[in-house]
């Protein structure tokens, strides 16, 4: 719905918009503030934007340590269950062997069980939260979905998007609440051996 044209309101808005002037002191303060902060190293990784396919022969358990950290203290089991979509049950995130061609990356398998889903996408900080970059493949068992993604060591935040609409944290993983967007994501820590 468009707002009705209102000359007085437009004049009011135009007057209010006048109060805009550069504040180099504030800019400098902001840049100083972030300059002193430790870099979040995973931000500087060039994330792939296309799905990865790995030959089955390269996938073998290698004793990688994958841990989970909760960004917020909200990872109680009841909370996880509440986040799960009806009929959806997540499977564990499985570490698989690292690919020799990509020494810095660790293949990680993401799995979800959702009998109602017709498409499941993996979104996360590693693929720019793209809903089209990393789609899960249906498994042999009905309602199972999985994809393997090479990830750099460190903390990753991710979620599933079911049928292009339903944003869903991994019910089995700790949650990281995005305070500014009110959504819950999942957190995963990958450590190379």
């Amino acid at each position: 719905m468009m707002d009705a044209h209102d000359e007085l309101i437009e004049r009011v808005a135009a007057l209010l918009r006048r109060r805009q002037s550069p504040n180099p002191r504030l800019v400098a303060r902001v840049l100083d503030a972030v300059d002193g902060r430790p870099r979040r190293w995973w931000r500087s990784v060039a994330w792939p934007s296309a799905p990865f396919t790995y030959a089955a022969s390269t996938l073998a358990a290698a004793g990688l340590l994958i841990g989970f950290l909760s960004h917020e203290a909200s990872d109680a089991a009841a909370d996880r269950a509440a986040m799960a979509a009806p009929g959806a049950q997540a499977l564990p995130v499985l570490p698989v062997a690292r690919d020799a061609r990509a020494a810095a990356l660790v293949p990680v398998q993401f799995t979800l069980r959702d009998v109602r889903a017709s498409q499941v996408a993996l979104v996360g900080d590693f693929n720019g939260w793209s809903q089209t970059a990393t789609l899960l493949e249906p498994g042999n068992e009905p309602g199972t979905w999985s994809v393997t993604v090479p990830l750099a060591s460190g903390r990753h935040v991710y979620a599933f998007v079911v049928d292009g609409q339903q944003w869903m944290a991994d019910p089995r993983a700790p949650k990281a609440r995005d305070l500014d967007f009110g959504r819950e994501n999942s957190v995963l820590i990958v450590q190379a051996p």
């Binding site: 503030a33 934007s49 720019g128 809903q131 935040v157 994501n185």
Partner: peptide
């Protein structure tokens, strides 16, 4: 505003490329 930009800096990794 300063808090906002520092927070933006800290959470840029959560900014989605399609947003």
């Amino acid at each position: 505003v300063q808090d906002t930009f520092v927070r933006v800096y800290d959470h840029l990794d959560q900014f989605r490329s399609d947003a």
